[in-house]
Write a protein that binds this DNA or RNA. Structure first.
Lengths: 138, 138
DNA sequence: CTATATGCAAACAATTTGCAAGACT
DNA sequence: AGTCTTGCAAATTGTTTGCATATAG
């Protein structure tokens, strides 16, 4: 499977072992797609891999996040969400349904980087700028 | 005390009772100023009001947030933070120190509203746009 | 072979809940 | 007086930890 090559090489380049559990967690993230929470990930993974333990899944997600293989997202519900996309992008967030949809637009990114190039906050080194666009899906 | 009039009237206009506990929690938020977490709020409130229970403080903060008297902020640590400012503003966030500083600039807000007026995401009604500017304080 | 990773179950932290007793309006 | 609110302690939720066993490199 070709898409899984990414995780294999990411693990090996960091000197981490390529285990069936780690592959399964990454595969679940790809399959679930849109910003799943831990419960969904656990359900998906244990579906095909019943002996895996929740603790391992947590550890694996932490590991992936630590090596920036995936992103953690925090929402207002206090439940952690994950995203296999690593490139910078923004989020549309509907707090009534807790739905998150990616939003990305080159013009927006250009506008933001222009702005911060001119008016960067003093005494602060910017690493990343993320927009949380809160509202309702129609 | 004049600043506490705001919370008194906010409570009465919503038909909520003005209790010493609610006043104390709001006062603590004003005194602590910069985005305290629950532990700090509890410590501050119990300092002057030793009989108040943590449960009450949690309930009070929830209530204030529900009526938009204060804002909840979620950071990467999973600990909830609060902000007595209700007007829209952005945050500088340093994940190494977990420090949050308000950032607000009219030009930025104008740029953003211009942009979204032209290029609003389809099927989504925007209520609020918040920037999380991640980086390091120098 | 050896270091790393897993599974399990117990521990934890932050927050929430239920309810009797108390306080605002 | 009546309803809303508080305090307390127990329950819950989501996540982390420790350690013996298993497994990838």
């Amino acid at each position: 499977m070709e898409t899984l090559e990414k995780i294999r090489s990411a693990l090996t380049t960091h000197g981490l072992k390529v285990t069936p559990q780690r592959i399964a967690v990454y595969k679940a993230l790809l399959e679930l797609g849109n910003h799943p929470d831990t419960d969904q990930i656990i359900a998906q993974v244990t579906g095909e891999h019943p002996t895996i333990s929740p603790g391992t899944i947590y550890k694996t997600l932490d590991l992936f996040a630590e090596y920036k293989i995936i992103n953690r997202i925090k929402t207002d519900t206090g439940r952690m969400r994950f995203d296999h996309r690593t490139s910078a992008h923004h989020h549309l967030y509907d707090k009534t349904t807790d739905r998150i949809v990616d939003f990305d637009d080159d013009e927006l990114n250009r506008i933001l980087s222009d702005y911060f190039a001119r008016k960067s906050p003093r005494d602060f080194e910017i690493e990343d700028v993320k927009l949380q666009i809160v509202g309702k899906f129609k």
